[in-house]
């Protein structure tokens, strides 16, 4: 028998975890809790979708947390201090973040630098720039914010599917389609397999690199807007360390950190697992919220070990496998 694909294992972990939580706290199994879980993790789901593309292509993007932070501050100041209409502010920040990502991609490709270093520089730059704009939290009082916050689809059982949760779901589905059904998606996997080989096979490696980091930063920008809806404020210290939560979600979702394999759906499940742990801790009430990090760490270890195991299994000669199967 063939081994289970990593995504399936992630799904099983999520369902089993959910069932265990529901046994202890029956209230967890309600659309209300699920709706909140989606809302609370909307920004994480969006940014993790972009990170999935980056990691499958063999790269990493450490700047996303800072881009989220910068976006919230920029949006808050633009609307509250500079009097820019909210929609225009959104368009401006998305253009800005996309350009930022494209620039990082270009630097990575042209100077042949490790993405880790380039996006680390991007992380400091974006975080520093947001402090330059404002060191204080700027509340957003624009009417559009209360409208969006109040909007929600009623689910059976009293749960609310909020606007930002809907945005996240649309982006996850869109991302999955882009990754699995288009030429762009196939090229992302090709890059993750081997940049040199992909280039020999005709993939425009440079353009792809720019586009992939542009997508990641663009989604980080959207995540930033969503985060500003979620908190109704812009703060330069928001989303510190989110890049690491994001990478964790992607890896737990079965994407190989070395690139070449993975899926957006897996990442989405990874986000939900992290959200579930957080929810469990909230329900328990006695546990420190830092247990989320510990549980995430343990899961991360388990998944990396699992992936190494699968990789090792795949490398075993076919004859041996056949022998073991009989």
């Amino acid at each position: 028998m063939k081994g289970l694909p990593p995504v399936l294992i992630t799904a099983i972990v999520l369902v089993a975890g959910f069932a265990l939580c529901a046994v202890q706290f029956p209230n967890i199994a309600s659309t209300r809790v699920v709706g909140n879980l989606l809302t609370d993790n909307a920004f994480l789901g969006i940014v993790a979708t972009g990170m999935t593309f980056v990691i499958i292509s063999g790269g990493i993007d450490l700047s996303v947390g800072s881009v989220i932070g910068f976006t919230t501050v920029f949006v808050a100041l633009a609307i509250e201090r500079w009097g820019v209409p909210p929609l225009l502010a959104f368009v401006a920040i998305l253009a800005l973040s996309a350009a930022f990502g494209a620039a990082m991609g270009a630097v990575i490709h042209v100077f042949d630098l490790p993405p880790f270093i380039v996006t680390l520089a991007g992380m400091f730059l974006a975080r520093g720039a947001s402090f330059l704009l404002s060191t204080e939290s700027v509340p957003i009082t624009a009417p559009v914010y209360s409208t969006v916050s109040d909007f929600a689809l009623r689910m059976p059982g009293g749960g609310r599917l909020t606007a930002i949760a809907i945005i996240m779901l649309v982006i996850v589905i869109g991302g999955a389609l882009l990754l699995h059904l288009t030429r762009f998606g196939a090229n992302v996997y090709a890059l993750g397999g081997s940049r040199a080989t992909a280039s020999l096979m005709g993939v425009a490696v440079g353009k792809m690199t720019v586009k992939i980091y542009m997508l990641s930063s663009l989604l980080a920008g959207i995540a930033g807007i969503v985060f500003s809806f979620y908190t109704s404020a812009g703060y330069s210290l928001s989303a510190v360390g989110v890049e690491l939560d994001t990478i964790a979600a992607v890896v737990i979702g079965g994407t190989l950190l070395t690139g070449g394999q993975g899926s957006v759906i897996g990442t989405f499940l990874g986000v939900l697992i992290q959200g579930l742990i957080q929810t469990y801790i909230n329900f328990d009430g006695t546990l420190s919220s830092w247990w989320t990090k510990i549980a995430t760490g343990v899961l991360l270890f388990a998944f990396i070990a699992l992936q190494q195991g699968l990789v090792a299994l795949a490398r075993r000669p076919a004859a041996k496998r056949a022998g073991a199967a009989t």
Binding site: R183, A186, N187, Y189, G193, T197, L200, M201
Partner: peptide, 17 residues
């Protein structure tokens, strides 16, 4: 010089699917 992580079909038609 092909990509072992892609399907055989994708390898044959990469960038000209």
């Amino acid at each position: 010089n092909l990509l072992p992580n892609l399907s055989v079909a994708q390898n044959l038609f990469l960038d000209r699917q």
